[in-house]
Design a binder for these strands. Structure first.
Lengths: 105, 105
DNA sequence: TTGACATGCAACCATAAGGTTGCATATTAG
DNA sequence: CTAATATGCAACCTTATGGTTGCATGTCAA
């Protein structure tokens, strides 16, 4: 779970996920195209995404295809974001109240 | 948006959000209780959470109260996680197919 | 008004993170 | 078989990150 949050923390990695979202199953070479980063940098990012299980690699000969795994993101939502969503309205209410009262007790 | 992902990347900060979720409006001192970290470390974490607008501070005399702001998390979900949720089933399908086929083209 | 309390600010430190370059390895095409 | 292609691995560098300690500031209570 921590690995997933860590993996999502970097904009380059989110960009890679975005690319895979729009075109699943790309090779490393394809994912590198038009990025101002070396192939090795991309490799490192993909390694973190794989460690977080957000991306699953599949070898086809000398090519490495990358597939999106939506499960970890879904879990993040279920076990983490959802919890805050459930409290969202009451938290917003707290905030509104306290900001209206403008710092008095 | 990047600030929000960065803020969520650290487990201590997620823990602080958790604490605020279960008891909103705590002071710095309260938030520090039973953490194996100095007050200054907590202050730094809270500063990042504030920069990401996940936590809103309200001063009451010499005390600083901390309130949860659910909006950024909601936006993360709306603009980011939701997008992947929408593709979730097809991505799972891709993954299943490719893993079944076990690496042939 | 003075001391205790709640917090802020700044310097400093160790390690992690993101990136590069150079070379090695494995697969495919001619 | 040999070239070119696709990728991996390792060393290295710079900056960010998470943490500490020490001291300063502002507020409340006796």
């Amino acid at each position: 779970m921590d690995l997933v949050f860590k993996a999502l923390a970097d904009p380059s990695r989110r960009q890679l996920l975005d690319r895979l979202c729009s075109h699943n199953g790309q090779t490393l070479g394809e994912l590198c195209r038009d990025l101002d980063m070396t192939r090795q940098a991309v490799t490192k990012h993909l390694a973190l995404l794989e460690a977080a299980n957000l991306v699953v690699p599949v070898w086809r000969g000398r090519e490495k295809l990358h597939y999106l795994n939506p499960v970890p993101l879904h879990e993040i939502y279920e076990r983490w974001i959802g919890k805050f969503e459930r409290q969202r309205l009451s938290a917003l209410h707290d905030l509104k109240k306290i900001l209206e009262g403008d710092n008095r007790e």
